[in-house]
Amino acid sequence: MSQPSTITIDGQTVPFQEGQTIMEAALAANIYIPHLCYQRDLTPDGSCRLCTVTVNGRNTSACNTKAMAGQQVLNNTQELQDIRQTLTRMLFVEGDHICPGCTKTGNCQLQAVAYYVGMLSSHYHHFYSYRKIDASHPDYFIDFNRCILCELCVRASRDVDHKNVFGLSGRGRKTHLVINSPSGELADTDFAVGDKAAFICPVGAILRKRTRYTTPIGERLYDLQPINVVGDAQQIHAGAKRHGNQN
């Protein structure tokens, strides 16, 4: 029987199966690589770049780079953490990520990643962009000001829900989330409570109406343990326990 193929991550030997990405191999070995646009069941997008790792001396995104035998991967280094912190800061200033007033606080993956990479301030000037909220849907509202263009909702709606409710439009810094409906409003789509896209948003952009702040401080996902221990925010959907908490 042949030996399983392995890579090393920060010196630790990590086995992988043929076809797995570095991210998948790392997660299987309980090694946390920061990420926002990656989700286990969806095709990797590689857009947030937070999972940047150094593979044999070159930086690449772990979520869409295949693991190959003998790779030497650096993940938890100061240089990479600095890069991730810079990326996280840029995400914060581009949108309206004011944690104290956001309903996702404590359960937000962006916030948790910011803590993980040691971000203590935004550093850069805020864009203060204003994008109108879409509250037309009876059960959900979209706060475009908080969208980080991770495309998780786009992929979930298209590939899992088979509804194609969301899309990205524009180019460069003008790229923005759009709703695929004649009016451009969520109410004119068949988006529904049970959709995977309804609870996949890692930030506070797609939120269930009227069910906010239901989890007390101290019991929220990232109150208890950091994201490198707890994992992605979407998991709490399954663990929702009080007052119909969905996020």
Partner: peptide, 14 residues
């Protein structure tokens, strides 16, 4: 103005 009403109690305490 323009924010969902359930955010208000937490937001205005600031």
């Amino acid at each position: 103005q323009g924010r969902p009403f359930w955010e208000i109690p937490v937001m205005v305490q600031r």
